[in-house]
Nucleic acid binder design. Structure first.
Lengths: 241, 241
DNA sequence: ACGCCATGAATGTCAGACAATTAAATGTCT
DNA sequence: AGACATTTAATTGTCTGACATTCATGGCGT
């Protein structure tokens, strides 16, 4: 992996060297790196510089460090959860910094989410359907805060993508959808709109239950359209304020 | 953003503090952080510790540092390209470490890719169609290496997702699909299979041209099935070896 | 006005020290 | 012999102070 313009910094160069050792398989999961002192010797730099390099890798969850005798830096086993958390941080920041319109974000979110409907209808399990129904019940509570409603909404859609029974797909979709949540949260939900959304959630679960791809897809499309409508009315309200 | 079990390290704690300042908007893009010496004072630690914290943030592209007078650490503007590169690194590593079956990866890849067909058929531009045709011509060259064929394949699918005309969708899809390329590269392409793939690529472009969603979707489904077949035959060949 | 250079502020690096932690080796008691 | 306590060595985490390097700015001389 060639580095961009250049790495005018020793610590960055050392980090890159070790990173490619990991990515290209010369260091395997669980392997212990040489101690900081040894690395400093090998690369002809001071320990401080090596440490900065290691911190860079630790920030990407590529390595983990343990203290004490026979501690050191170990190639980390990247779990789905860690990877997803990082993806969400990066994507959230990206979306927050680039003046994404609500409509574009919404369109992307539902396009991604609909990519799992066919598999989800085929493979949905009773356990996941039950989880979705539980979230719907939560959402129907009359005195629920907007925050809690959104959290439950995320959990519902998370369960939906899990229905596809493909962990790789779940990882990508859950990460993508979750990253867009802050943009979705521009909307303040009225009792009326909550009821509408809950109805559509019910339709999705019902469609999955009878393995009817088309009805699930239709419900998601309707949910997308409705969400965009809500977003636009919020924008309009702000404009006239 | 609460940290998991604990961060028993000062440099990690400081990095987390600054990170949340950025993610939650208390520091804006382009803002200059205090100098390392000032940060060290504020947090009551040494400059070395602050530097390790800053390197962690730099590794996530959250900040960039400039040397010289009036240099320092600045909140970075995260570009789509930087974000995608990070997403690809993380996802590639994740997939490489978790014994993903070829079939599961393939299924996820095409499910994601098909999420843009409807928008792509509606919005495809002549420029992007031309780009796709150029890649097909490249792929048809008789003396092309496997590596170059795969690279062109990535470029082709990249153009396909760009057809959807939604930059957020492009970002997520291009990253996801690219991250799975190493798994796809298990396949060694024969002249026969290349011809088959190129035919399907042609069908995709033709479908986009006449804005026929169904035919594009069908071509992608066929491509998925064919890719899985190829993968299985490779596995079978290895098993009997 | 123009170019050159000193200055100062900042990061990048180094060397050496000490504290904290931890597993393993060693010692000690029953 | 076995259980428990202690020492030891390796390693990371942090601190201190120093020097090198980079670069915008402003003053100086011509």
């Amino acid at each position: 992996m060639k580095n961009q313009t250049a790495a005018p910094s020793l610590s960055a160069a050392i980090a890159d060297a070790i990173r490619s050792d990991i990515v290209e398989g010369r260091l395997l999961v669980g392997d212990r790196l040489p101690s900081e002192a040894e690395l400093a010797d090998q690369h002809g730099v001071s320990r401080a510089t090596v440490r900065e390099a290691l911190k860079r890798l630790a920030a990407q969850s590529l390595i983990r460090t343990e203290r004490g005798a026979f501690g050191g830096a170990f190639v980390n086993h990247l779990s789905y959860e860690e990877a997803r958390a990082q993806q969400v941080t990066t994507s959230t920041l990206l979306l927050g910094m680039n003046a994404i319109s609500f409509q574009v974000a919404c369109e992307a979110r539902y396009a991604l989410e609909r990519s799992c409907t066919a598999l989800a209808a085929e493979r949905r399990t009773d356990a996941l359907l039950a989880a979705m129904r539980t979230e719907i019940d939560t959402q129907a509570a009359p005195d629920l805060s907007d925050e809690a409603f959104c959290a439950s909404d995320v959990a519902f859609h998370r369960a939906l993508v899990d229905c596809a029974g493909n962990e790789v797909l779940s990882y990508h979709l859950a990460g993508s959808v979750e990253a867009m949540q802050p943009l979705m949260n521009m909307i303040t939900f009225t009792a009326r709109s909550r009821a509408e959304i809950i109805d559509l959630h019910r339709a999705i679960v019902a469609g999955l239950e009878i393995r009817d791809v088309a009805s699930v897809d239709r419900a998601l499309a309707t949910l997308e359209a409705y969400t965009i409508t809500l977003g636009q009315s919020v924008l309009k309200a702000r404009a006239t304020r």
